[in-house]
């Protein structure tokens, strides 16, 4: 078990008029190498969960464990936890501050106390893995395009060589091309390096396309947790909590309601899968198999 939440509660400003119970008795565990989608609309408690992941917030009650150790305990070095569990916040490019891209990416390793040579080595490797080559090293971060800035910011976290990467809406504000690039990059890092990925999003389409497993938060409570395909069978409940399901799933559920049968094992989550299933259904009928 890599990361485990045990009965975690978080209350903002307890015992004041502003008291807010943001996370309520949440438990789950994430294995090394999983790709998890953490879903919920604004105010569902997902942003609070992110900050609990690496000890930026400490649970009001319950505990967060990393490889079996409670990260709130005194023996644990927060610095180490935060380099092992990397968080990429929303609009991470707002945090770029150095004079050159390379120096910016070196900031994390530098803070870890690594020698200068290793800082640079790691920074260069991280930049390569996000697709920014040498020509970017000496550029000012502010000369980059929106998508490039975001990749540079992700490199800044990767340079710490984390075991897990938590990303808060990494595609927010990007156009379709930029969105596909960034999410494709995250998938590549997950596949090639065995990184554990938690993708925080309010887009069901993104979760459907990339995550193996989905955790759904609603009003501070964990409402669903399971394989992506299984969670999306709860179309009605999901739309009641303001999330909805991918368009393809809705189409299949409308067709089934109108009496068109499909096998249970079709891939309803992707366009390709949907096209295959829809095509086969009509061809079978024409061939007289129905």
């Amino acid at each position: 078990m890599m990361i485990e939440f045990r009965n975690v509660d978080y209350i903002y400003e307890p015992e004041t008029p502003y008291e807010m119970h943001a996370v309520k008795n949440v438990s789950f565990s994430i294995e090394a190498g999983e790709f998890v989608g953490l879903l919920g609309h604004t105010g569902s408690g997902k942003s609070t969960l992110i900050e609990l992941f690496n000890g930026l917030l400490k649970p009001s009650s319950g505990s967060v464990l990393f490889h079996g150790t409670d990260i709130s305990s005194k023996e644990v070095s927060m610095k180490e936890i935060r380099s092992k569990i990397g968080i990429v916040f929303q609009y991470p490019e707002h945090q770029l501050f150095e004079t050159t891209v390379l120096r910016d990416v070196c900031f994390g390793p530098k803070n870890m106390g690594l020698p200068e040579e290793e800082q640079k080595e790691r920074a260069k490797a991280a930049l390569t893995s996000v697709g920014l080559d040498e020509s970017y090293y000496e550029m000012s971060p502010f000369e980059l395009s929106g998508g490039e800035k975001r990749r540079a910011a992700i490199a800044g976290v990767l340079a710490m060589e984390p075991e897990a990467l938590i990303l808060d809406e990494p595609s927010a504000g990007l156009d379709p091309r930029g969105r596909d690039e960034i999410l494709g990059l995250i998938r590549k890092l997950w596949q090639e390096r065995g990184l554990t990925v938690v993708l925080v999003s309010h887009s069901m389409d993104e979760a459907a396309k990339y995550a193996q497993r989905v955790i759904v938060m609603h009003e501070g409570v964990k409402t669903f947790d399971g394989p992506t395909r299984e969670v999306f069978t709860h179309a009605k409940e999901l739309s009641e909590i303001g999330l909805g399901v991918p368009s393809t799933v809705r189409i299949f559920s409308m067709l089934r309601e109108r009496g068109v049968a499909f096998p249970a094992d079709i891939d309803e989550l992707s366009i390709d899968g949907a096209v295959q299933a829809l095509l086969k259904r009509v061809q079978d009928k024409e061939g007289g198999h129905v």
């Binding site: 379709p176 368009s247 393809t248």
Partner: peptide
């Protein structure tokens, strides 16, 4: 041109 089309249209 780097744009999406509605899912039903695409299907």
């Amino acid at each position: 041109r780097g744009l999406d089309v509605p899912v039903p249209t695409q299907l």
